[in-house]
Design a protein around this nucleic acid. Structure first.
Length: 274
DNA sequence: CAGCACACCTGGTTGC
DNA sequence: TGCAACCAGGTGTGCT
């Protein structure tokens, strides 16, 4: 599922379902996804209460009684909440059983997702170690800092936006949408961007991710009807998965290329290389 | 240090 | 139809 808007949607959904619940037991069927000490994870979680939910970039945060569970959904991670035991499912990897009989299940077909348990004091250091950039908001995402970083990089702008260091939260869908809106070719070396182009990318990043959060995220390729997949942002995509269709701005046919190993959609007329 | 290919997994789609 | 190759909303590693 997830780029930032989808993770935010899951976060808001879980807030309504599991806040205040006490974990009675934990069941881990795919131990490899627990990246901190497994014994500790199994020992510490039971008896903790879900105090609140949070999000930083694409990381989902469960604030527990005296720990923080950091969950990253990677490509296909999903959470399902059941007021009872829940059904048996092939790709269910972690079960959080609550004292009231409810169950939160983490499912992930590709098993790329990760979970880590930290003391809250180490959360800031954790994100610093990941070199995670600012949240895509007016308050946090500073244009001057962004422009200065771009000026020092030869990386294609799309690859740079995807690496989470300049700004947190963009993934392969929204980065294509942002660059289309900003009218910048995805392969442009970062340092060749003009101040106007950098400003447009900055502003459109905030606008696109903000709009996507409002729409509840995007639901693409109708995967299983996962919790939180009720988004409608896909109806507003202008280039992602629009290969062969006309650009709504100029009528030119949208093209798809490979860039940094990722499928990349753009309008060859609106988004010139130079 | 920067940049890039590749690894991690499974399943759906495409093309011969 | 059968099956191999390729592709998928992400990130960490290890190499040049």
């Amino acid at each position: 599922m997830p780029e930032l808007p989808e993770v935010e949607t899951v976060c808001r959904g879980l807030e309504k379902l599991i806040i205040g619940k006490k974990i009675s037991s934990i069941e881990i069927r795919y131990p490899k996804m627990i990246k901190t000490d497994l014994e500790e994870f199994q020992r510490e979680l039971p008896s903790q209460i879900i105090e609140s939910m949070g999000r930083r970039g694409k990381y989902l945060l469960f604030y527990l009684t005296d720990k923080v569970l950091i969950s990253h959904l990677r490509m296909e991670g999903k959470y399902f909440y059941y007021p009872d035991q829940g059904p048996e499912r092939k790709h269910a990897h972690v079960f959080f059983h609550f004292e009231d009989g409810g169950t939160l299940v983490y499912e992930d077909v590709r098993k790329f997702g990760t979970m880590e348990l930290l003391v809250p004091d180490l959360l800031d250091a954790y994100f610093i170690s990941k070199k995670l950039g600012p949240e895509p908001s007016e308050q946090d995402f500073d244009l001057q800092v962004f422009q200065a970083a771009l000026a020092k990089s030869k990386k294609p702008i799309k690859s740079h936006l995807l690496d989470q260091t300049l700004v947190a939260g963009l993934g392969n869908i929204y980065v294509d949408e942002v660059l289309w809106r900003a009218q910048v070719h995805p392969a442009r070396p970062s340092q060749t961007l003009t101040a106007e182009e950098a400003t447009a990318i900055h502003d459109q990043t905030i606008a696109v991710l903000g709009q996507a959060v409002e729409k509840g995220g995007s639901t693409i390729r109708t995967y299983t009807n996962a919790f939180g997949e009720d988004g409608s942002m896909q109806d507003f995509h202008q280039v992602y998965d629009k290969t062969g269709q006309e650009c709504v701005r100029c009528g030119t046919i949208i093209e798809k290329i490979q860039l940094g190993g990722r499928g990349t959609h753009f309008c060859p007329n609106c988004q010139r290389r130079d």
